[in-house]
Each structure stands twice: as C-alpha cells, then as structure tokens.
Write a protein that binds this DNA or RNA. Structure first.
Lengths: 380, 380
DNA sequence: ATTAGCACTCGAGGCAGTCGAGTGCCAATG
DNA sequence: CATTGGCACTCGACTGCCTCGAGTGCTAAT
C-alpha cells in the first residue's frame, strides 16, 4: 500500500469517525486540503474498496471503512495523542484521594475511563498469580456464624461470612483457626486443596465432624478469593452514540454486557493472547514488520489489544470494538482494563487514554501498597 | 364519579397501558364488549377530559390518561392479581438458595423483581434503627494496616480496612481493640460519637497520639455501617419500552438513575410519608373514603406507595412512575423495595409483585436469621 | 499518471392526495 | 331525558411524485 493510499485511508477513517456518515471524494479533498483532485481520490478509493478496506452502503454514496479498513488503520496509521501533564496530575489525584481499599481504586479507574472516553469501560479486579496465604483468622459472630478473614501475600484482604456448627464455641473456633493457620500459612493458593486443608483436623482434639464443617467453609472462602470482580462504568453514555439509535441493536449489546462474568472471562482470554503477541510483536518490530493485533510499544510502556467487530468472539458484540490492556502491579498482581465502543471509535485517543490510565493505576497502586501508616492525625 | 365513568376510565387505562396508543370510543366498545354505543362513550370521555383525567394529543385522536387519570385508576380502580403458589415456591427458592450473606438476599430481590416486572427495580439495604453495637474486633493485617469487624445487634456484620500508625504492634492493637469494645459494646449506634469513643483512650497505657488515630478510624468504620447500599437491576430492559425510543429522554432518565444515592435518599423520604399515609389511610378506610397515596391494605399485608409523573420529586423522572414498599424484618430492620417504569405501567401487576416480593423477602430473612448452624457436612 | 467533464444513481426532503380512526354536535328515539 | 345514529370535520400516517445534492464510474484530454 503506497503512501497516498495510506493518507487517504486515514483521512476517511478520521472523517467517518467524526461524522458517522459515508465520506465522498470531493468533501474529502475539501476538508483535508489534499493536493489531488477528487477524481484521483475516486480512483484510489475504488482500489481501496477492491482491497476490502472500504465499503459503500449503496452505489452512489460515499465510502466507509470496513472491519479490515479499521484494522489497517489501527495497525499502521494510528496517531496517539499525548496526555497533558495537568490531566495526569488530576487523574492521579482522583484515583488516590482518600483511598482505603484496593476495590475503590479499581472502581475509580472504571469511572475515570468512562468519563474520559464517553464509551463503556470495564476493569477487572486483580488476579494474583503465585499468591500465597499469609494469614487466616476466624472470628465468632454468634453461635452458628463466623467470619473468615484472609490476608494474601501482596497485602490483599478478603473476608466472608460462614456458618459453623452451633455447638462450637469461641474457644474451639480459635483453636480450629490456629490449626488452619499453622497448616496453610505461607502456602500458595493453588496448592490449597480440600486434602491439604483437612490435615488441619488432626491438630485438634475436637470432634472431627465439627471441625470438618469449618474446614470446608474456610476452604470455600479461600477459593472465593479467586473470583474475578468486574467493574463496568459508562453503560448509558453509549446510548448517545448514533449507532445505538436502533433499540434492538442496543438491547442485544446490553444483553451481553449484563453477563459481566462472560465479558470478564473473555478479557482474561485476550490477556493470554496479548502476551503471545507481545513476543511476536517485538519479533516483528525487529524485522520491521507490523505486529498484528497487539502493538507492543517500547519496553515499560504498556501494550494493548484491539478487537474490531467480528474479531470479538462474544456474540452480540459484532458491531463493537474492544480495546484492552493489562495492568501489572509488581510481579504477582495483574488485571485487565478495557473500553468498549462502536467500531466507529476514536482509536488513537482511546488507546492513549487506556495506556495512560494503566500507567497511573500502577503508580497509584504501588504507592498505596508501599505507603506505611502515615496518616492524618485524629481530629476532634 | 358514577360507575360507568369508572368502567370507562379503567378500560381506557388498561388499553393504553397495553398498546401505548390513544384509545378511541369505537375501538373501546369493540374491545370490551361494552353495552353502550360509541357516542355515549364519547360523551363520557368528554366529561372525563373535563375532569382532567384524560387528555388528547390532538383534536382528532383518541384519549390517553393524564397523571390525574392514572392517579384515579391507582387509587380506586386497581385490580391486584394473585400470585400463584408455584411462583411463590420458586421465588422463595431463588432468594434463599445457598444464601450466606444478607447482601445476597437483597441483590437477588432486585434481580427477581426486575426479571418479573420488566421494569427497573431498586432495593435498599436495610437500615437499622435502634441498633446497637454488639462486638467490635480489630485485627492486624500488616504493620500500618488493620481490619475492623463490627457485629450489630440483629446479627449483621460489617467490616472495613483501616490504616493505623505503623508503630503499633499486634499486642497494642489487641489492647486498643478490647478497650474500644469495653467502651462501646451494647451502645446504640446513635449514641456513639467521637466523644464517647475517645473515652476508650483512657483505658490504655499507650501513647495517646497512637490510640487516637485508631479510635478515629474505628469511629469512621462504625459510622460507615449506616451507609445505604443500593441495588438496582433491570436498567436495560426499560429501553425496550416505546417511551424510551427518544434517546434524550432515555439519557435524562439514566442520568438520574446513575445517582444511586439520590434515588436512595428519595426512597427513604417516601418511607416516612408512607408511614404517615398508613395512619391516615386506615383512618379513611374506616370512614369509607379512599386513601390518597398509600393504600394500607389489610393488616399484616404490606402497604405500598405510588408516585406518578410530576409527583416524583426527582428532576428527570417526570415521565416515570415509581412504586415503593417498605420491608421490615423484625422491629429493628427496615428497607425499601421499588420499581420504576414509564407512567404507562401495569400498576396492578407491579403492585402485586412488589408486595409479594416484600412478603417473601421477609420470610426468607427471618428464616435466614433464625436458622442455626445446621449445614451440609464436609465432603471430600 | 492525473484530471476535467459528463452521465448516472440514490437518498433526503418537500408537496399533494387519500385513507382511516378519531372527534363534536345535533336531532331522533324508547 | 339519557341514549344513539348520523354527519361533518380533523389530523396523522401513508403513498406517490418531484427535485436537489452529493456521490459514483468512465472516458478523453493534458
């Protein structure tokens, strides 16, 4: 593809993204001050159409990008705007202000991204690979009920209410708790199974039936920590985009979004693929080719993935584009950030934003975990 | 208003709710096999219009109910369908299956209601009036961080991560925790203030600066338990209703819904009013008049409130109707259940549903709190 | 290789006419 | 005297027709 074709394709995509209307040769020349006549453009357009990059809604209309056209645009023609410093300061402030729990950080990330992009944002809570259980405490609430508090190695805390046999009293529970802790503390989550945990039973003198039930509940609580939490924001703003005029289309889309766990699962899959692509991508960059779906940017800057239309393997999303990136906090913690919008999306801008947010989130998180107990003094 | 007018008004509202189209005299006669001619109906309609119960979009169109028309319908003409027994069994099952935390119960209530009504459902987490603090435990996570676990009198558990001075070690923290518990246990939440809690400082030998900070954080954690959690479901189904064709209208509505805390606050207000109305309502029922906004049904059956159009004091909701009811679990716990839909709403059906769900929720909750530690044994 | 020019296409928008489901009103009626 | 049949009128929805403008592809000239 020669340079002129590239310029024209880029111009068409840019215009179409702005206006949502098929763009014609004449107006393209006018709007971009091109140094070719409209006839030339027409010829080029015809060729681009033959290559499958453009489509015409009907004979006498202008052209709009096909999925393949967007693909080419994203892979080769993208310009990524810089995020100004004052915005960085604001974002950092927004994410870190009055921060207490990791959950809030994730929620705010989703909120910020939705706000800035006007599309739908999805942020997955961190997954902990190679994480181990540091502490486990069980506390009596009342006869029959207790709370399990788990501390994982990167300082993450989970808790869950459980039911226990009402015969167990506070002292018994303490004892069982200590037994479990002795048995599991320091173990990797993956290594904790019903079998490992049941060995804790041997360390107590209490009747096995009682202990076993507590062990089982504790086990469930531990496994529960691996659930992915999904934070979605900006659901409604999408309605403002013209492609959502069609109610059926909108409904079909929202039917997918409702199934948050499915979206989350899909994002995790994309993460795997992204990792592969980074490797391939670096490879290709050396050979001066272009990476296919993931653009691994210079080291230390986060990579991202773009899925366009049919490429999204979630039925109901065929008309959308999905941009994701993986955030990593230290080695153990990783999660996903994503933006979903119409195919007619401001790719450059969104990719800048998502990479930017990724970076800020990591910084804030590191800060959060590092910062000790320095804290404003008590008032009143 | 004579009986015939009532029949006609009811027929018009029913038809309009079904079709969303102005209903004319002739088709009304046809559809309902009325024993009057269309001319008679026309005369009656003209009078109903004069009374402000009906409106015409233009001269030669049929009539549709005005806000006041809906009001009259809801207050006097409603027929409340019975919920069949098998649905009751299913609902009970759905709400109580594998239930661990109270939160899940509320979430599921919202889900069930949205599913059944095809409108938007809002459920507020319980508020505890006259609640006291039963236990408070503080546990060290790592230097600088701890978790506060609070148990309130109806067996409700809250927790929150806090920051503490990193100089404090596990033993100190225990000591402070016990001091707080001694000082606060059994106290009503309303009676706990920064002053009461700070008296706990005197019970320890630790440096006041350190203790004060923990006390402050614990205080925040306690106050935090009074936050209202809002569970909303069915946001998207509303899009399927024809009144949401207009994107601007939809956007305006969603702008309100996004502000969940505002909606929650408004529902709490409605609760107050409902209580008043029940009293007045009972009064009026004795005098054989009709209650205005809240229809206090026979004792033990829950009351509900209906707000129609302009009556909703949330700007952006003028085109909607809002039905709420208060659930009460025992004396101390109460919360709100609501359904929001277009004014053209199946009032009878929704009111039946919402009252029904209220009843089931209460039953399940009582069950949940009563049930001891009887639980399936450990497997594996 | 580029471009000016021309014939052709197609959707959007404006206009007139028809149709159907309404209405209000009046005079006839049991 | 409440009810009803009949009639004239209204208005939105639909249809067909026309024009306009922004496109296109193709060809011949530069």
């Amino acid at each position: 593809m020669d340079d002129r074709k590239k310029i024209i394709l880029k111009a068409i995509v840019d215009d179409y993204v702005r206006t949502c209307e098929p763009v014609g040769s004449k107006s393209l020349v006018r709007r971009h001050n091109l140094s070719y006549s409209s006839a030339t453009i027409r010829n080029e357009m015809a060729e681009l159409e033959e290559m499958g990059l453009l489509i015409k809604p009907h004979t006498s209309a202008g052209r709009m990008p096909s999925d393949k056209g967007y693909r080419a645009y994203v892979d080769n023609l993208l310009s990524l705007p810089e995020i100004p410093l004052e915005e960085e300061i604001a974002a950092r402030q927004f994410l870190s202000e009055n921060l207490r729990e990791a959950r809030e950080m994730i929620e705010r990330t989703a909120e910020y991204l939705a706000e800035k992009t006007n599309y739908l944002s999805v942020v997955l809570s961190p997954q902990y690979s190679d994480t181990s259980l540091e502490q486990i405490k069980i506390m009596m609430i009342e006869p029959g009920r207790a709370i399990v508090v788990l501390v994982l190695s990167p300082g993450v805390v989970h808790d869950r209410l459980i039911r226990i046999p009402s015969l167990i009293d506070e002292k018994d529970l303490q004892e069982i708790g200590h037994a479990i802790e002795r048995c599991l503390a320091g173990k990797r989550l993956d290594d904790i199974t019903l079998v490992t945990i049941s060995s804790a039973a041997e360390a107590t003198d209490l009747p096995e039936v009682l202990v076993n039930q507590v062990l089982y509940e504790a086990y469930i609580a531990i496994k529960q920590t691996e659930r992915i939490d999904v934070y979605i924001d900006g659901k409604y703003q999408l309605l403002k985009h013209p492609e959502f005029r069609d109610v059926n289309r909108a409904s079909r889309f929202y039917d997918v979004v409702r199934q948050e766990q499915m979206v989350a699962g899909y994002m995790r899959e994309m993460e795997q693929e992204e990792e592969q692509n980074i490797v391939e991508g670096l490879d290709k960059i050396e050979k001066m080719e272009s990476a296919p779906k993931a653009l691994a940017t210079q080291k230390d800057r986060p990579a991202y993935m773009v899925r366009i239309g049919q490429e999204i393997a979630l039925s109901g999303m065929e008309d959308m584009s999905f941009i994701t990136t993986t955030y990593r906090i230290g080695r153990q913690i990783s999660g996903q950030i994503g933006v979903i919008g119409p195919k007619r999306m401001e790719y450059g801008n969104i990719i800048s934003q998502i990479s930017f947010v990724n970076r800020v989130l990591c910084d804030v998180a590191k800060d959060h975990y590092a910062r000790g107990g320095d804290h404003p003094a008590i008032e009143g």
